[in-house]
Amino acid sequence: MKILIIEDEIDMLQNMKQTLEKEGFLIESATHYESAFQKIGVYAYDCILLDIGLPDGNGLDILKILKEKGINDGVIIVSAKDSLDDKLKGLNLGADDYLSKPFHMAELNARVKALLRRSNFGGTQNIELGNLSVNPEERSVWINQTEIELNRKEMDILLYLIANKNRLVNKTALAEHVWGDHIDQADNFEFIYSQIKNLRKKLTAHQVDIEIKSVYGIGYKLDVL
């Protein structure tokens, strides 16, 4: 699947590129309004990550033109402004999602995957990891055809880790995603450990083929066995 990243900050672009390439996506990038414009005209992308604060133009204009031309690439707006106004404008113009800087790469990954799932399979297809089968839209989990009851947070954690499978997920990223952005760095997020523990217990009780590993002091990692 092909993703276009329109971002003027080179380091940021590299991080995003590296992260998404690891997931097996084909990445193209543009650092300017003009070059972005040219790429959109030539290729079709499954997803476009659009920074609206470009040095030579407003990213929202790119979005406008995309929609005018009837190009239905999925668009995630990336903005450093964190302003509601931009967010509303972007979503009204037909953007699929909005990600405000700074964000964790795990969050980017999750958002991109969610978007691709929605646009490619209409969200109907289950995610299969060994004997584990998850439907994010219905929020249901099966292991060997047995449905597992998870609470809201356990579900959120599992989905987030699945979107970032085989990758180290920073516990801050996880906490912000599940408990909300406003949660302060309360005691280093040690409290999320109890939810992880519960989740593990429920999954291993059914001999699941995945493992949620704690990585010393940093976060968690979901491995498929």
């Binding site: 940021m12 690891k22 700074p102």
Partner: peptide
């Protein structure tokens, strides 16, 4: 914001190399 975020991201990527 941006330099901090970039540093965090780079570290995360580095740590993933395992």
């Amino acid at each position: 914001q941006t330099p901090i975020a970039i540093s965090i991201n780079k570290l995360e990527l580095l740590l993933e190399k395992n």
